[in-house]
Simulated scan of single mutants.
Amino acid sequence: MTTVGILGAGIAGLHLGLALRAADVDVTLYAERSMDELAGGPLLNTVAHHHPLLERERALGVHHWPAAEFGYRAHHHWIGGLRFTGRFTHPSCAVDHRIYLPRLAEDLAERGGRVEVRAVGPRELGGLARNHDLLVVASGRGPLSGLFPRRPEHSPHDAPRRLVCAGLYTGIAPAEPAAVTIGVAPGQGELLEIPLLSRHGPVTALLFENVPGGELAVLNELSPAADPALFRKTVLAKLHEHHPATAERVLDAFALTHPRDLLQGAVTPAVREDFRPLGGDKFALALGDAHVVVDPVMGQGANIASYSAAVVAREIAAETVFDELFCRRVARAREEVLLAASAWTNLVLDPPPWLDELWRGLARDPRRADEFTDNFDHPERQWRLLATRSRVRAFLNS
């Protein structure tokens, strides 16, 4: 029987493990920390799961949070004074990963996958590879962060383009209809307002994407634990000044749910090599954040990680030899979607002047706004529409 070792217990590693167990492949998942520690720890992200990911959950039997009950069906946009709404064909859903990941780890263990809490560094990879036919590295943080070299032709940034300040809040009246609100403050950054199911119940996630050195960068310097009143006051002031579409629905009860429900940091986008030889005809295959890291501004990270895991699982189940030829076939199979999501996200982080034409066109044409929104499910389609000024104009005039 084929045996696969997976390093990393995020959505990429867990979706891969579950898909492999469905194909009767032996799986050991190596987690950097226990699921109890993760569940009680600080906020991990504020990701939304789009329809293709939810369909994979259904196929894997882990769709525990039905989008019909917990999801939303639209994006409201506020971009430099322009307002428009785009609607999904199928709903998306956001669930706190401190709930989501431990539940999927339970599912994996119940289906015969082994979950082992173990820190693995580069020096341990060779020894670990002897226990498995293939190692899949799905952790892009910690000691394995530089394992796979960057591909400079697809990695234009060597530093973060945004400072991330993401938190869970109560006291914000929901948008009508239920939706993610995407606010763009030109020159200052973006705000994603996301209805999210948390351990506190339904809350609102505010994901500030702040330009370094800009007027909202102060949000990354304040601690709600050290001075909760100052933090709340500053968030409210910045909302009213730069993101009025959200500020107009803030209630007197507005508050961060808990100091641990805040994530402050930054992401350097990168596309890395697909695989690495470990010696002795063994290879490590990159997955998730170890392979492609995108800024969260377009909400693609978890979705492309799950997509990549599905591709890798399909290729493993169809193969018995996991050599360089196998690794190169995996790279070709998943490349279009992953590179498209990365390129689209980078375009938004450094918007060309003609991107304003897109926003104005979408505000005029609800059908195009719906298509643009639906393509959050399909980054390869989105990139074909947005890659150049000519493509944007053809999309708007089609």
Results as ranks from 00 to 15, higher is better:
G8R: 07
G8K: 03
L14M: 06
L20F: 00
Y30K: 07
L44W: 00
P52K: 09
L53W: 12
L53G: 02
E57H: 15
G61M: 11
V62H: 11
T85N: 06
G86M: 08
H90T: 12
C93F: 06
H97A: 12
H97R: 13
Y100T: 11
D107F: 05
G112D: 10
G113T: 01
A129V: 01
H132P: 08
A138C: 05
S139W: 00
S139I: 00
F148H: 03
R150G: 04
R151P: 00
S155L: 09
T170L: 15
A179E: 11
T181A: 14
G189I: 00
P195E: 07
P195F: 08
H200G: 04
G201Q: 04
L207K: 01
N210R: 15
V218F: 02
P224D: 09
A229T: 15
L230I: 01
K233A: 15
T246K: 00
L251H: 01
R260I: 04
G265H: 11
V267W: 09
R272W: 07
E273T: 12
D274R: 14
D274K: 12
R276A: 14
P277H: 08
G279C: 06
L285C: 08
L287C: 10
G288C: 00
H291A: 12
V292D: 09
D295E: 09
Q300D: 11
I304E: 01
I304N: 03
S308T: 11
A310K: 00
V311E: 01
F326G: 03
R329K: 14
A341Q: 07
A343L: 15
T345V: 14
N346G: 00
P351L: 08
G361L: 08
G361Q: 03
D365V: 05
D365T: 13
T373D: 05
L386T: 12
